[in-house]
């Protein structure tokens, strides 16, 4: 027992040190885990070095396991910048007064979700969601995803007049877009909703087998991903820091880096750009 108590004292002492050991002036960012982790680490590892070069401070990317973890880390000021989806960005900016959407992909103001189907369903591409989908199994992406959950759910409700779990025989949440594609391809679910960018880059690099899974419906356009920064970064990293970060993001022109997002480039964004997302999320009860 005595030894244990001794151990305890050491632990208490060690804990104290740990609480302060992370360098206070490292600029930390995260991103919603919307795709396979390997892809995220490659993409944001590259962003990390790019920003470090541009901003002349230590920059660190931390991977997280859920959309909510990304929002919480941002809210708790453990990260100061994040690549959010439409919904997670709105959640984060509501929770952190003064935070701002500063840049979005060129494609993001007109983003889309695709409804995809395993070819064994016999479904063909359609202009309006048909009754043939009813009673099938369906997977969203993450519960907190804009293109994998919020907007598809909104349009499904609009088309069928009831909640997805009334329309479909089984509704699941795959976790991310890569997994949605894989699950529908394997037939685990007959249908799925997926980020159109993830779909198209998967088709392009051959990782999606279009004999097994195909797009059957495309949603109308809506705004999605953006970089959001905390309002207090200037106090911490110096006057004009926020503008420098914004400029660095807008200046990103390395084709290889952009390809990893995949976006053709970045353009300015404002909080107001995401008002439609906020309204939809409120209507679905996903925001208080």
């Amino acid at each position: 027992m005595l030894k244990k108590l001794l151990g305890l004292a050491t632990i208490a002492a060690a804990m104290q040190t740990y609480a302060f050991s992370a360098a206070a002036d490292t600029f930390v960012f995260t991103a919603i885990p919307d795709q396979d982790e390997t892809q995220l680490i490659e993409r944001f590892g590259a962003v990390e070095s790019y920003l470090e070069e541009q901003l002349d401070v230590d920059v660190k990317y931390i991977p997280v396991k859920s959309y909510a973890a990304a929002v919480s880390a941002f809210r708790n000021n453990q990260v100061q910048l994040a690549w959010f989806g439409g919904l997670s960005g709105v959640q984060a900016r509501r929770l952190v007064p003064g935070s701002e959407a500063i840049a979005q992909g060129e494609e993001d103001p007109e983003f889309q979700s695709y409804v995809i189907a395993n070819t064994s369903t016999g479904l063909e591409p359609m202009d309006d969601l048909s009754d043939a989908l009813e009673g099938m199994t369906f997977t969203f992406g993450s519960k907190g995803s804009t293109s994998g959950r919020l907007m598809p759910e909104f349009f499904l409700r609009e088309a069928y007049g009831e909640a997805p779990d009334e329309v479909f025989s089984r509704v699941g949440f795959s976790g991310n877009h890569t997994r949605t594609v894989r699950l529908v391809e394997a037939g685990t679910y007959q249908l799925g909703a997926v980020n159109y960018k993830v779909w198209e880059s998967g088709v392009e690099d051959g990782s999606i087998d279009t004999d097994k899974v195909q797009v059957i419906w495309k949603t109308p356009y809506y705004p999605d991903y953006q970089w959001t920064i905390r309002g207090d970064v200037d106090e911490r990293f110096g006057e004009g820091f926020k503008d420098r970060v914004t400029q660095a993001l807008l200046d990103m022109d390395d084709p290889e880096l952009l390809q990893r997002f995949p976006r053709t480039g970045f353009i300015p964004a404002t909080n107001e750009d995401y008002a439609p997302i906020e309204e939809t999320a409120e209507a679905l009860g996903l925001l208080n």
């Binding site: 632990i11 060690a14 609480a19 930390v28």
Partner: peptide
């Protein structure tokens, strides 16, 4: 070996991110 492990373990927890008590 236990006392050794117990004393050493706290030093291998990693540093993670700083705690903000306001949170």
């Amino acid at each position: 070996m236990l006392p050794f492990y117990i004393v050493a373990a706290p030093f291998f927890l990693g540093d993670g991110m700083p705690i903000m008590w306001g949170n």
